[in-house]
Design a protein around this nucleic acid. Structure first.
Length: 720
DNA sequence: AGCACGCCGACT
DNA sequence: GTCGGCGTGCTC
């Protein structure tokens, strides 16, 4: 006798769907969320396929859970992600599935209001409730109890007696309907033309990918809002992806100015019931526009008609734990599957996107000038070989003069140094002992404010010692080199009456306080901002007219093949902070190598030339313009590491045709949290099934001895 | 993710 | 002797 069998994918790190028998009379369809027994517990999973067969020895589907059905397109997308990222299918599903918490269902919105005469038996608690309810307004049950300072039981008692009556409240809408005709921002000719191109792309049979490039302040947001408006007019959904930090009140206000309401937002801070409601409302096409961080890409949109990836070059789009993916690339794939146009917006597009434009895979839409006739900041180099900086100082006389000048006019200056802490290296004056991390052999960075030495690689923290741990000398520690804290000290000495603030990712007080301080800066409550990368993006500081880059050379010499590109983008972003308000801005870039291609391109403003040069350099080095970086991770005890390394190297030494493994052959192993890790650049022809190849690596080298294992991490930034 | 099984060090 | 640390493997 045959019966129906459901292949159910469970959102755990499992690579295959498990088969369950469907009991007679239970309606189960592909994409349904079902409850199934697994080992000794019940879990939720999604029906990935249905078939007929002999299901006698299988466990049975327990029931169907009331949750949005995952569409075939969504399942295809998740399958693709699992294949592409080498992640178990179940892990991919875990990103796109939210199971409603049955306990939360009870929190129904029940309102109560005064309905009858006072109760026969009056008590002090009841009296308080009556006083609050006297005005006759409808309140949530819990609110009324709280306002009266009594327990919910008292309110329930009054309801039973008929003194209060319950009113069913309509669920609070998760998001309001954006109105595409609400506000019309005046667009420049250039903006209008770009907007028309995007809108026209939305009615093409095969949805294209468009790279929207425009310098900082050219009004990209207003341009892609027109595409969003078109999606809403067509009754389809639009997703605006952005790096988490860019989801600011500023952005939401701009959206509201165009559409009359704020968009629904999705990020790690949206939790609980709100998260559930939003999830189902997106699945039922009630919510039209979602602005969200990368995880918003995995929501079950009913009818997705447009994806915007704002700041597409941002590395924050990479997810580096669990399933490794790059949200920008996955957005392109989802757009293909949903047949929705994808707009990649950036002032400094990534090399991959540029190459995709060159090869005709993406379309290029350019916005030439700053909006409102504002000019780009004037950028000048300060050649540190020619201009001496006083010993123990890091600001050149030219920069000091410029800062003085700027703050004297009541404008703001930004001093940019991409180094957290006080000093990147600390050593002992007496014995030259260098403070290193016990876990991962990198320098410990002194954080004077926290009185500790911190490893920026693995997070190890220890208290700054009084006496040298090696030779015992007291007060012998010497800081070497500058960090932002040290620059703040220098700025305080140079400009004692000016208000300075240091911003870095270890800002005390967390994101909340950081947001307040960013707003305070925008409001002009500080004169000098000293900051790391953090200040390069997101926030707008209208009073900032000077940006000083203290050391443009940082990062140019790191071994990362993408170092030049990343440094160029970062410097372009940070110098672009100047002059975004009424007054024109300028930037001073301190450097030891003004002729370096990155610095030269920055000064001349010729990004095009830089990208051409960079692409050529990579080709000469045998690197594809955008290849795949695979990290080979060897988990091994220290004494077994050498053998593990040798075994892994032997494996990668014989790649199949079409695959080239580019060094490092004798890479020094870096020990990070008990794992030796090294990176390999894998160059492949497009046709090669890299996934199959990498999987064969893992299959052929499952373990070396005991708990020594080899696994592969694929760098999410890669070709499509 | 949970949960069981199993192999080694510290002790009521 | 056992308690319990977590490393390893399995879940239709």
């Amino acid at each position: 006798m045959t019966s129906r069998i459901a292949d159910v994918l469970i959102p755990l790190a499992l690579d295959t769907a498990y088969s369950y028998a469907v009991p007679e009379g239970l309606a189960v369809e592909e994409g349904d969320v079902v409850q199934v027994p697994l080992a000794n517990r019940e879990v939720a999973g999604v029906v990935w396929g249905m078939r007929d067969g002999q299901g006698g020895n299988l466990k049975k589907v327990t029931g169907v859970i009331e949750a949005p059905n995952l569409s075939p397109r969504m399942r295809k997308f998740l399958d693709w992600i699992a294949w592409y990222t080498l992640a178990p299918k179940g892990s991919a599903l875990a990103m796109g599935l939210k199971i409603p918490d049955p306990d939360r269902q009870e929190v129904a919105r029940v309102g109560v209001k005064l309905a009858g005469p006072p109760p026969k038996r009056m008590t002090p608690a009841r009296q308080k409730v009556m006083e609050v309810a006297q005005d006759g307004t409808v309140r949530l049950k819990s609110e009324l109890a709280h306002a009266a300072g009594v327990s919910a039981g008292v309110v329930n008692g009054l309801i039973d007696e008929g003194v209060l009556e319950t009113v069913t409240l309509l669920a609070e809408p998760v998001a309001e309907m954006p109105d595409p005709a609400f506000g019309h921002t005046a667009l420049s000719d250039g903006q209008r033309e770009a907007a028309d191109t995007l809108v026209a792309a939305m009615s093409e049979e095969h949805a294209p990918v468009l790279l929207l490039e425009g310098v900082t302040g050219s009004g990209k947001t207003e341009v892609y809002f027109e595409a969003v408006a078109e999606a809403v007019r067509n009754g389809r959904q639009a997703l605006i992806l952005m790096p988490e930090i860019a989801l600011t009140a500023q952005f939401l206000d701009r959206f509201a100015a165009r559409f009359g309401v704020k968009p629904a937002t999705w990020h790690s801070g949206v939790t609980g019931r709100k998260r559930e409601r939003l999830y189902t409302a997106i699945a039922s096409n009630e919510v039209k526009v979602v602005a969200g961080a990368r995880s918003a890409l995995f929501l079950p949109y009913a009818d997705l008609g447009l994806i915007i990836v704002d700041e597409e070059h941002e590395t924050a789009y990479k997810q580096d734990d669990g399933v490794h993916y790059h949200a920008r690339d996955m957005a392109v794939v989802r757009g293909k599957i949903e047949n929705a146009p994808v707009v990649l917006a950036s002032a400094t597009p990534s090399i991959e996107s540029r190459v995709n434009v060159e090869r005709g895979r993406y379309r290029h839409v350019k916005l030439p000038e700053r909006f409102g006739g504002r000019s780009m900041p004037q950028i000048r180099a300060v050649d540190l070989r020619k201009e001496a900086v006083p010993k123990g100082r890091w600001l050149s006389p030219t920069l000091v003069a410029a800062v003085e000048d700027t703050v004297a006019r009541g404008e703001q200056a930004l001093l940019f140094l991409n180094r957290r802490g006080y000093a990147p290296l600390t050593l002992c004056r007496a014995c030259a002992h260098r403070y290193e991390c016990p876990n991962c052999s990198s320098w410990l960075v002194e954080h004077r404010f926290r009185r500790s030495l911190v490893c920026h690689h693995c997070g190890h923290v220890e208290r700054t010692p009084h006496a040298c741990v090696e030779c015992g000398s007291v007060d012998s520690l010497v800081p070497c080199g500058p960090g932002v804290e040290r620059i703040a000290e220098e700025a305080a000495e140079l400009f004692p009456d000016k208000r300075c603030i240091v911003l870095s990712s270890d800002f005390p007080g967390g994101t909340e306080r950081l947001r307040t301080e960013l707003a305070a800066i925008a409001a002009g409550e500080f004169d000098i901002v000293i900051g790391t990368q953090l200040v390069a993006k997101g926030h707008n500081f209208p009073l900032m007219t000077l940006v000083g880059v203290l050391d443009a050379d940082i990062g140019l010499t790191s071994g990362d093949p993408r170092a030049a590109e990343r440094t160029f983008q970062m410097l372009q972003q940070v110098t672009g902070r100047a002059g975004r308000g009424e007054k024109p801005g300028r930037a001073l870039v301190q450097t030891w190598q003004p002729d370096h291609p990155v610095i030269a391109a920055l000064i001349s403003g010729d990004a095009e030339r830089f990208y051409e040069e960079e692409t050529r350099v990579r080709e000469m080095a045998g690197l594809p313009p955008f290849g795949r970086l695979a990290s080979l991770i060897v988990s091994a005890a220290e004494r077994e590491a050498a053998e593990a390394h040798a075994r892994a190297m032997a494996l990668v030494a014989e790649p199949p045709p079409g695959v080239t493994v580019l060094g490092p052959a004798e890479a020094p192993l870096a020990l990070i949290r008990g794992r030796y890790r090294f990176r390999l650049l894998v160059k492949t022809e497009r046709e090669v099934d890299l996934q199959a190849y990498l999987r064969s690596w893992m299959a052929r080298c499952p373990k070396i001895r005991g708990n020594t294992r080899v696994s592969i991490d694929v760098d999410p930034q890669s070709f499509l």
